[in-house]
């Protein structure tokens, strides 16, 4: 796993470059007479891992779905890779959509297809690739996300929760996207699997040069892999920046989030051991 210092250095460089991949301006999204996202502004820079946090019902999922084009927006502009999606022709939009990968919260693997077929689905549908190469690439992606070859011919219903997430990540990475959306990637995983998954996302992000937009509740993920964190409340971004600046914020929700009962313990521990390198606990026999 990359040490936090290189991550931070990388983030500094990227912020200097300021290559904006997603830019959201004055976004308003609502359903019926409820407005959920109220004039939200957010930038995602190339090569960074952005963590989006916020309480339940504060618009995290709606924001993600709005960026992905799954819910209609009422006002505001969303530019992805410098293009305004609403202004694009359908074919251009399809090309745009092939440049991102999405990991849904519950995996959203196609239940009628095996894991391998799930991974090959985007390749088969959007590219003209020989079956042999597709097989090899699917197996390679499976290995990259840490699944054995025996998982390839299983159906999603035969997989455990962690394996579903990994298989879904492999599908999200099938076309080597530049941008990956992760919706609560570690929810429902045990702490060890969650840590492994964080590490996996970190490694893949470095290897494939991904930009990661990650909605999460998991404080550990924020600490270990996110370069920047955006906090959402009441349909707006109340703070965005490196984790350290958010920790110092005195917004009541952020205070409760980072310095509350659960967060406080972790924050204290992290600050205490900030400079120590993580070592595995000595095993006793």
């Amino acid at each position: 796993m990359s040490s936090p210092s290189t991550n931070a250095d990388g983030a500094v460089q990227q912020r200097q470059n300021r290559d904006v991949i997603i830019s959201v301006r004055d976004l308003v999204v609502g359903f019926g007479d409820r407005t959920i996202v109220k004039g939200l502004n957010l930038d995602v820079f190339r090569g960074e891992v952005l963590g989006v946090v916020g309480g339940s019902g504060q618009g995290k999922s709606v924001l993600t779905r709005a960026i992905l084009g799954l819910v209609p927006t009422r006002a505001g502009a969303i530019r992805i890779f410098g293009q305004d999606r609403d202004a694009l022709a359908p074919t251009e939009r399809r090309i745009l959509e092939q440049r991102w990968g999405v990991l849904f919260q519950n995996g959203a693997l196609f239940s009628g297809l095996t894991v391998k077929q799930n991974i090959q689905m985007p390749m088969r549908e959007t590219r003209d690739i020989s079956q042999h190469l597709m097989d090899e690439l699917a197996m390679l992606k499976l290995e990259l996300v840490g699944l054995g070859p025996d998982a390839a011919d299983k159906f999603p219903s035969e997989l455990s929760g962690g394996m579903v997430k990994r298989a879904a990540l492999a599908r999200a990475l099938a076309l080597d996207p530049e941008l990956v959306f992760l919706d609560e990637p570690t929810s429902g995983l045990d702490p060890i699997s969650a840590a492994e998954f964080d590490e996996l996302i970190g490694t893949l992000q470095q290897t494939l040069g991904l930009t990661v937009f990650m909605v999460t509740h998991d404080l550990d993920s924020l600490y270990s892999i996110c370069d920047r964190v955006a906090a959402l409340a009441e349909g707006r971004v109340i703070a965005a920046g490196p984790l350290e600046t958010l920790l110092e914020s005195d917004h009541p929700w952020l205070k409760a989030y980072f310095h509350g009962v659960r967060g406080g313990r972790l924050t204290a521990a992290r600050i205490e051991h900030k400079d120590e390198e993580w070592k595995p606990a000595p095993t006793t026999r």
Binding site: L144, P149, Q206, T207, L208, G209
Partner: peptide, 18 residues
Amino acid sequence: PEYSTLLEEAHYRAFDAP
């Protein structure tokens, strides 16, 4: 450097078709 990590991760291994 970014290619070398990628080449490293995608090193060749045989996938025996069952």
